[in-house]
Design a protein around this nucleic acid. Structure first.
Length: 319
DNA sequence: ACCTGTCAAGTCTGG
DNA sequence: CCAGACTTGACAGGT
């Protein structure tokens, strides 16, 4: 099986290349002139897109084909303070050429809205803010002219002291989403509330792909063996044009087991690969480590000494 | 150039 | 009902 590694949002290798620059509400409020305000926002947005383009060049140079966009590409995009700002119009051309490059190189692009984006909140205002945030992400993809292989990764949300009810709410709110959002949302197990098995069942019901997070599974499970779930998890991707995606991170230490370590422990990953190999399925693996792309390259280096691992390119292995 | 408190957003726990 | 933890890159103000 072939595994493509990717990383999240920013580089620890390329300096001064943040795609997530922003401005605080307070300092934006201090700017009196409306045009100056817009200029500030526009400049930041364009710089973020430009830096994302630089990351794309870097990714290409390192054979990295799997990448998660920052959710902060457009500063304060869903905050009411920017209601007057037509950001899409301002960065239309920038997004378009960014997307062209991504498509030319067959990058597999995803995004992961922040933990405030909750489809199962009982609070109306939380749900509507979440919808706004989902539409914002969709618009970025749309501006890049990506098709529905570009995905939005979401968690199920809070437990609200009644998980069954919370799942019901998730399902009915999901069903009520506009089709263009349903097409791109994929669901991930989390480290505290919704286990891989629970998310798998929801994914099967809603017919959406599931992202398996291995680290989250270690944190939050009811004793299920991943191998028993893996085939069905990968099956949720059956109708997609891209391979299944998993998330990989290593615990920081025993004390903060849920936190992400700087790098990825090759040993634990190999254990998973050894289990998964019976399925012989290709998949994408998103590296979630503090060292970001550096952690990816470090992991590749560690894997290169393992006899069962065949190095295909700088970010791809066969096992 | 470097340091530190603060930042749009939610949920959960404990008081 | 409210404060603090969670978690995290970047800002902003200060040295």
């Amino acid at each position: 099986m072939r595994i493509n590694l990717g990383y999240v949002a920013m580089s620890t290798i390329i300096k001064d290349c943040s795609p997530s620059k922003t401005v605080t509400v307070k300092s934006l409020e201090k700017i009196e002139d409306k045009e100056a305000k817009l200029f500030k926002l526009r400049s930041i947005a364009k710089a973020n897109i430009q830096n994302t383009q630089r990351l794309f060049y870097h990714n290409k140079a390192h054979d990295i084909k799997v990448y998660r966009l920052t959710s902060k590409l457009i500063p304060l995009a869903t905050h009411s303070i920017t209601d007057e700002w037509d950001w899409f119009e301002d960065v239309r051309d920038d997004l378009k050429s960014l997307g062209e490059y991504a498509k030319e190189n067959r990058f597999r692009i995803s995004a992961h809205p922040d933990h405030f984006t909750l489809l199962n909140s009982p609070r109306e205002e939380v749900l509507s803010a979440s919808l706004k945030d989902l539409e914002y992400h969709y618009k970025v993809f749309k501006g890049m002219e990506l098709d529905s292989s570009a995905k939005l990764v979401l968690h199920i949300g809070g437990g609200y002291k009644n998980k069954d009810k919370a799942i019901e709410r998730f399902v009915s709110n999901f069903k009520a989403l506009p089709q263009h959002l349903k097409n791109i949302i994929i669901l991930e197990n989390d480290d505290k509330t919704y286990t891989a098995l629970e998310v798998l069942n929801i994914c099967k019901k809603l017919k959406v792909p599931m992202v398996l997070d291995i680290h989250h599974h270690w944190c939050n499970n009811n004793g299920e063996d991943l191998l028993d779930l893996l085939e069905e998890i990968f099956e949720t991707w059956m109708h997609e044009s891209v391979p299944p995606k998993i998330h990989i991170s290593s615990p920081k230490d025993d004390k903060s087991f849920r936190s992400h370590a700087d790098d990825i422990e090759a040993k634990a990953l190999l254990k998973f690969l050894n289990k998964a190999k019976v399925l012989d399925a290709d998949f994408d693996a998103m590296i979630e480590a503090k060292n970001k792309d550096r952690a990816l390259l470090n992991l590749m280096k560690d894997l290169s000494t393992v006899p069962e691992v065949k190095i295909i390119d700088q970010a791809t292995i066969e096992y």
